[in-house]
Design a protein around this nucleic acid. Structure first.
Length: 259
DNA sequence: ATGGCTAGGCTCCCTAGA
């Protein structure tokens, strides 16, 4: 089963690109982030025509996540538990059917900038809630894939110019420690389990020729339960998509499970 | 990033992104 994640930065603008990528890459599951539309405005039919089941947790203008799956989805659950007052659409979980079911979540972790505002404690609080959710799910001993835009640069090898990101919410020591605490629950970074090279990025800013200089960061991750990690057959970043017409600033990241 | 681009909407300027 091939599972991918992609922050598309508006599904309306990116629809043709996403459809083209699906035809080419043929993932079984695609986790989308920053769709920036309400559920009713999501182009559901276009994906159903390609053979995907669709689950959406949308929001007007900002955020919004979705799941596309060739196999049927059960137990489709929006929202990360732990704060009923959090109305931002950043989490959608489902169990993908099949002989070996896989629980998948599409995650859009808060950016957190600027760090001296309430946006940063919101990010850290969200990360603590995600850690709690992971802890709960790992007890089930299922195949589990938490995939999405984590807005976390895990280490210096995941950034072109570390000094430029020192004080940024994506790279602050407290952010990286919270991410390490999440991994310590028992999760494996699928890409890093397959590739230890530096200079492997999933995001390049639109500004200042960042793409042309390969001035990027790796912030889109697929985190696997031990049961899923045992099935891991490969992982990669579809970097070439960044050079397509009217691209997102993120590219798809994927993993292949023998399940 | 001393913010150079992109997207959305309360659209001719603002917020947000990372």
């Amino acid at each position: 089963m091939k599972i991918a994640t992609w922050n598309v930065n508006s599904i309306k603008v990116r629809l043709e690109g996403v459809l083209g990528w699906l035809r080419q890459a043929e993932p079984d599951v695609l986790c989308l982030q920053e769709i920036k539309v309400v559920d009713e405005a999501f182009p559901r039919q276009a994906f159903e025509d390609l053979g995907y089941n669709v689950a959406v947790h949308g929001q007007k203008t900002y955020n919004g996540v979705a799941l596309l799956s060739k196999l049927p989805m059960q137990d489709v659950t929006p929202r990360l538990p732990g704060n009923p007052e959090d109305v931002q659409s950043r989490y959608l979980e489902a169990v993908i059917g099949g002989p070996q079911p896989v629980r998948v979540a599409s995650i859009y972790l808060p950016n957190g900038n600027p760090p001296d505002t309430d946006k940063y404690p919101y990010k850290l609080g969200w990360m603590a809630r995600l850690k709690d959710r992971a802890n709960e799910l790992l007890k089930l001993e299922e195949l589990l894939v938490l995939a999405g835009d984590y807005n976390v640069i895990p280490s210096a090898r995941d950034v072109y110019n570390a000094d430029a990101w020192r004080g940024d919410a994506l790279f602050l020591p407290e952010t990286r420690l919270a991410y390490q605490a999440l991994l310590a629950e028992g999760l494996t970074d699928a890409f890093r389990a397959c590739n230890t090279d530096a200079g492997q990025y999933s995001f390049w800013d639109y500004q200042a020729g960042a793409w042309q200089k390969n001035n990027g960061i790796r912030i889109d991750h697929l985190l696997l339960s031990p049961q899923a990690a045992d099935c891991l057959r490969g992982a990669g970043i579809d970097k070439a998509v960044r050079a397509w017409e009217q691209p997102s600033d993120h590219v798809p990241v994927w993993c292949e499970l023998a399940a």
